[in-house]
């Protein structure tokens, strides 16, 4: 064998040796599951039916249409959307305000950032326990306001409370990112605004917010994607079969199907449907992100054309 080919083979062998664990992992825990899950979603595999047979798109169709068996399917999607509506704007606005406050020249910026970050290092289960007891009928909140509202079991307040928990917990991390973006804004923009007569609020509106727009966009996208997947908190607090309908999100329903109903094929179908939704959103985001770049390219072409015309 030629020396060159030998060297080539050896190089490839080394490379693949290094990524072998990754490849094995990928095949076993990424590819295989995805394929199997996809296949199963087309069967009727469940605890009741351990010898599955193909049913085609039946699972999906049943999910969408069968109101008797899957009465929570569409409502769970609604719940998920509602949750996203509660958390994403609130979190964004709160993060902006807190970051702006920390960005004005005050002392103790590090102190505040540390305190806000504590929930991010609190084990999520522990945090749920803490909130669960805080919101209990005899918990902290009720003690302070001398009321007796069972926040978490009350249909109208449950989801709001979980949303609040999520916004509260995410503030530290979000502020960290937003603040570092704010510090990247050219200070002479603030000075120019000051010279033109802008007050503190106007400076925020016209310099700060536009300046961190990419970060805002980032939060929007990640917020939406993780919002779609909300379910873990509910499972911790309520277990997998709660009667409080207003907290049954899409992913919660998925767990319900898997754990309580042992209906693996339906659960798989639900995961894939979720995957499809997230994919669509990611593609839309890609398009929007590159929309700016596309506009710029068009603008530059126009300028070049103008310059060329002028010469003639």
């Amino acid at each position: 064998m030629k020396a060159y080919t030998k060297q080539l083979l050896k190089r490839n062998a080394t490379g693949y040796a290094f990524i072998l664990p990754l490849l094995i992992y990928f095949i076993v825990f990424q590819l295989a599951p995805m394929i199997i899950a996809l296949v199963i979603s087309f069967t009727d595999y469940s605890l009741a039916n351990l010898d599955p047979s193909f049913v085609g798109f039946d699972n999906y169709i049943e999910l969408f249409t069968n109101k008797a068996v899957y009465q929570n399917f569409w409502s769970s999607l609604l719940t998920t959307f509602l949750y996203m509506l509660l958390t994403v704007p609130t979190s964004m606005i709160l993060t902006l305000i807190v970051s702006a406050l920390l960005n004005s020249k005050i002392k103790g910026e590090k102190f505040f950032k540390t305190i806000f970050y504590i929930p991010s290092v609190t084990v999520s289960v522990a945090m749920m326990v803490m909130w669960k007891q805080m919101l209990a009928p005899d918990g902290l909140i009720n003690q302070i306001f001398s009321s007796n509202i069972d926040f978490l079991n009350n249909e109208s307040t449950a989801l709001v409370m979980i949303a609040l928990m999520s916004v509260w917990g995410g503030l530290g991390y979000n502020v960290l990112i937003m603040l570092s973006a704010m510090k990247n804004i050219d200070p002479s923009l603030y000075e120019a605004a000051e010279m033109d007569g802008a007050g503190a609020f106007q400076k925020f509106l016209y310099v700060t917010v536009p300046g961190v727009m990419p970060t805002i966009f980032f939060f929007l996208v990640t917020g939406l994607i993780s919002g779609f997947q909300v379910g873990e908190q509910m499972v911790i607090i309520y277990g997998t079969a709660t009667q409080v309908g207003s907290v049954r999100t899409y992913v919660y329903e998925m767990f319900y199907q898997m754990r309580e109903m042992s209906n693996f094929s339906v659960a798989s179908a639900m995961s894939y449907f979720l995957f499809a939704i997230i994919l669509v959103f990611t593609l839309i985001q890609f398009r929007l992100q590159n929309a700016d770049a596309i506009k710029e390219r068009r603008m530059l072409k126009k300028i070049k054309r103008e310059a060329a015309n002028e010469k003639n």
């Binding site: 490379g15 693949y16 825990f29 599951p33 899950a37 779609f228 379910g231 798989s268």
Partner: peptide
């Protein structure tokens, strides 16, 4: 090594699949 960049891109993309979607399939595996 051969197809390095392609493999990298595939892995990058596929592992961006959100965790909750992978839960059920992983359980089955």
């Amino acid at each position: 090594f051969f197809a390095k960049n392609t493999i990298f891109k595939i892995i990058l993309f596929s592992m961006m699949v959100p965790g909750t979607v992978m839960l059920v399939p992983n359980f089955l595996i």
